[in-house]
């Protein structure tokens, strides 16, 4: 009853902000190329809330992928803090970061990054490693999600035996199979035609809305996801410039 009162109160007053899924503060990252230091990220601040789709635009080389990799723990920032559901990602060990990434984050790459010698089923199944499921369970779950993406008859095909669109869906299946709270999509439609891009969004957007997950999409040009963006940023000269205001998320 008490909970009910509180919930009603929350809904009525719309007072409590939800916690961001990810919060990046003052992220700096530089590279040294032939002795010359190149500052890629110069103090990036970013918050992404549950259910929010953030699109980051920027030219090639501006550091969009680097930002995604830093958020996912694949790369480390020179300085700054990343909190994923209040957990400081940069304080985790290598093992913990890998597990965190596997359980919490779905990665979608521009070129899909499917393992060429593994079948569609095996590629999807690879994201289920060491999660205490039997082999049959893993296969069954991977097959189920692939079937849901109309690839039920292509389970045993290698990536090269699939069309670009099918490869994209396999990559999506791998990203979504662990039901992640955050999707990081790096130029996800950079290699596909408009129809395939639309099909992909037809899978991702409902997933985010239904799951109350969050998605950060990077793109270097026009992208259909911009139309779905709740928040739009431009990454330029190492900093994020808001282009389209966050809607209701801060007072969600």
């Amino acid at each position: 009853m008490k909970d009910g009162i509180n919930m009603a109160s929350i809904e009525k007053n719309n007072m409590i902000k939800p916690k961001p899924v990810i919060r990046c503060s003052k992220i700096y990252k530089s590279f040294r190329v032939r002795g010359r230091r190149i500052d890629v990220l110069k103090g990036v601040d970013l918050e992404v809330y549950p259910g929010e789709i953030v699109v980051i635009k920027g030219r090639s080389g501006e550091g969009k992928s680097v930002l995604q990799w830093i958020i996912s723990g694949i790369d480390t920032p020179d300085s700054g803090e990343i909190l994923f559901e209040d957990v400081p990602v940069h304080h985790l060990s290598n093992e913990e970061i890998s597990i965190f990434r596997r359980q919490k984050i779905g990665l979608v790459f521009q070129n899909f990054n499917l393992i060429p010698s593994w079948t569609a089923l095996e590629n999807v199944e690879s994201a289920l490693l060491n999660n205490n499921m039997s082999e049959e369970e893993k296969r069954s779950r991977a097959a189920e999600i692939l079937s849901g993406m109309e690839l039920g008859d292509r389970l045993d095909n290698l990536p090269r035996e699939l069309s670009i669109g099918q490869q994209q869906r396999v990559a999506l299946a791998r990203a979504l199979i662990n039901d992640p709270g955050l999707i990081l999509a790096d130029e996800p439609t950079g290699s596909v035609d408009d129809v395939t891009a639309r099909d992909m969004l037809a899978i991702l957007i409902p997933y985010i809305r239904k799951r109350k997950g969050a998605m950060i999409v990077t793109t270097h040009g026009s992208f259909q996801a911009v139309n779905h963006a709740d928040t739009l940023y431009l990454l330029k000269d190492g900093i994020l410039i808001p282009e389209k205001g966050r809607q209701d998320y801060q007072s969600y």
């Binding site: 290598n94 890998s98 597990i99 990434r101 596997r102 990665l107 990054n113 690879s126």
Partner: peptide, 8 residues
Amino acid sequence: ILMAVGWT
């Protein structure tokens, strides 16, 4: 790729 998708 395996490490990116969460293999330790």
